[in-house]
């Protein structure tokens, strides 16, 4: 797994490449915690390079969303590969996260909401 981040307008975009599995999910957890501690709570996870996720990874996202909601922040997703989208759907994540086809859509809609 490779994690990189960039600040675009009001958002922190996190690009995740590769696999999130039982061996590395804690790296993702630490990175998201770091962002929260520096008050970056408006997060868009760009999943274009994500090709595998297990329940430990899903749990990290759920916990992060709970924390984000409590501070009026938000976690949303874009560019999910079809197999990953299917796992999100099975897990009921499509109803607790906003999921967009593209990064542009994720930024536009979230900007409008915050206006």
């Amino acid at each position: 797994m490779k994690i990189s981040k960039e600040k675009i307008t009001d958002f922190t975009v996190i690009n995740i490449d590769g696999r999130i599995d039982t061996n590395n999910y804690s790296d993702l957890e630490e990175e998201l915690n770091r962002l929260f501690n520096s008050r970056e709570t408006n997060l868009i996870i760009n999943c274009s390079g994500l090709n595998y996720i297990c329940s430990s990874g899903l749990r990290v996202f759920l916990v992060t969303q709970k924390k984000a909601i409590s501070v009026n922040g938000k976690l949303s997703f874009c560019n999910l590969q079809p197999a990953i989208k299917e796992i999100f759907t099975i897990s009921g994540f499509t109803s607790i996260f906003q999921i967009f086809d593209t990064l542009e859509q994720a930024m536009n809609i979230n900007s409008n909401l915050s206006c």
């Binding site: 329940s55 099975i90 109803s95």
Partner: peptide, 19 residues
């Protein structure tokens, strides 16, 4: 797990066996 619950009420465990 009850996957219809909103994020704030969703329990964090049980997803593995559910999947």
């Amino acid at each position: 797990p009850d996957i219809s619950l909103p994020a704030s009420e969703r329990p964090v465990g049980g997803l593995g066996i559910f999947l």
